[in-house]
Amino acid sequence: MLFVSEISFERYFEPVFQPVSFALEAGGLLLVTGANGCGKTTLIRVLAGFLHPTSGNYTCQAPSTAYVGHQLAIKDDLSVIENLRFMRNFLGIRQRSCKAVMQRLGLDRVAGQLARTLSAGQRKRCALGRLLLTDSKLWLLDEPYANLDPEGVGLVDDIVINHLAAGGACVLATLGNHRPGWASSQEYPLISGAGEC
C-alpha cells in the first residue's frame, strides 16, 4: 500500500533524518519511534505529501490518506457535533452517523458545547473522530496518544486495530512505550540527520 525508498528531507540544507525505506502492506502497522527531534513529525508530513522529499521516492496506492497530527483541525467556534458534521459532509460520506461516532469517542455529553470549552484530551478525541468518518485506507497518526487518559489510549488502540483488521494500513509515530496489540506490526526507529537519537 505504501512503498518508501531512501526518502530524505532537508531543512536549512541539513538532513532531518537518515534516509528512510520501508514497505507497508494492507493490514500492516508501522510504528515510527525515536526521541524528540528525530524527525517523526517531519517524516509523517512527508508521507502525507505536505513536504516534498529532498531525495528518494515513495508510492502510495491508497486512494486517500487520513492524517491526525498535532494540529487537530478543530474549530473553536463550532460545537463538537458541528465539527464532526463538517468533517463528514466535507469528506462526502453522509451515511455515517455523527451521533454514533460521538458515542464511540465518549463525547456525547459535550456534543453541543463549543470546541473551545473542551479539555485537551476531549479535543484529541474529537479529532480522532475524523478516522471514524473517513474511508481512507492509509492512516498517518502523529502521536495519537498525546493528552489522552488510559481509557482514551485504549480507544485509539481499538480504532486502529479495527482499521487494520478491515484491511487498512497505518503509520503511527509515537514517543512512548505503549503499542497497539497487533501482530503484523513493525517498528521503525528513526535516526536524526545528525546521526543522534
Binding site: 521516492n57 508510492t59 502510495c60
Partner: peptide, 12 residues
C-alpha cells in the same frame, strides 16, 4: 493504472 495512486518521485 489506478488513477488514485499517488506517487512522489524526485527522479526527473
Amino acid at each position: 493504472m489506478n488513477p488514485d495512486t499517488r506517487k512522489m518521485k524526485t527522479d526527473r
